[in-house]
Amino acid sequence: MNGTTTLSIPNLRFQPTDWIESLWNGLLRLFAIIPLCVLVFILGKIFSNGAETITWEFLSKTPVQGMTEGGIFPCIFGTISITLLMILMALPLGVGAAVYLVEYAGQGFWVRMIRAAVNNLAGVPSIIFGLFGVGFFILFVGRNIDHVLRTGLLFGQPCMLWAAATLAVLVLPVIIVSTEEALNAVPQSHRAASQALGATKWQTIVHVVLPQARGGILTGAILAISRGAGETAPILFTGCAYYLPRLPVTKLFGVIPMINPLDQFMELSYHIFIMATQSMDAEKTLPIQYGTTLVLIALTFLLNLAAILFRMHFRKKLGQVSLQ
């Protein structure tokens, strides 16, 4: 009896699998480390090559000399305005859809269909959104608006409005998924308590659920902005301009300055693309390309980092709430 137990222990210890074990351990660790090195290398290269280009002039001036010199201010302006316009369209729709899915819908056929559609939408190639933007927004919606309002060719051509709408469709799944997560994290007991006090479903959502889910929704919005700011393919044909001598601004009622959603625009990611592939002298403009890339990366990274920190913070807070 005693012998069998003492025998089995050395057997386990000195199995020939030991060296295999450590080999696989090392290999798997390598698989985790190599991608990190790639990330660090990409960022390091772009930073070291782009840092010297970044000056106040570069950030605040317009391109000159056939875009071989000067700054990228119109691109920064365009990126910010289009992402703002995009989030204005996508956020209400996405949050509404998520509220419906979590608070109203049960587990029926339609809910399964909606979830499947959201997941599929997240996997649609970005260039397909570009085609969709051209086929649906510009040629169908835009041309029909022109036809009805008799505005000639105003809406039925590539412009910021349709580019933003295309991006809004693209980031919709991001917003829906993170809002859903945020709503699900709100304890069920809070809803029950609110309804027990006589609040209706909508009152419960507005006064109890949404305030607690605010952090998660904000995280989703930031992630969506970061994604939208980095996408290029959907806006290639829906409103981006190679070079635009003016900013896409107009005066509302002739006095209040505002972004003109019916104008074309320059954009950071598109600027990188054309400078790297279609520029007359790609070697000469390399510093501008690195500088623009660095600005875009810095923008998306700050946004992503903010989203990650926000999420950590709010998860911790919600964890405390549900413990109480």
Binding site: I42, G230, E231, L296, I297, F301
Partner: peptide
Amino acid sequence: GIPSVVIG
């Protein structure tokens, strides 16, 4: 979160 244009 790295935009694909940057990787390109």
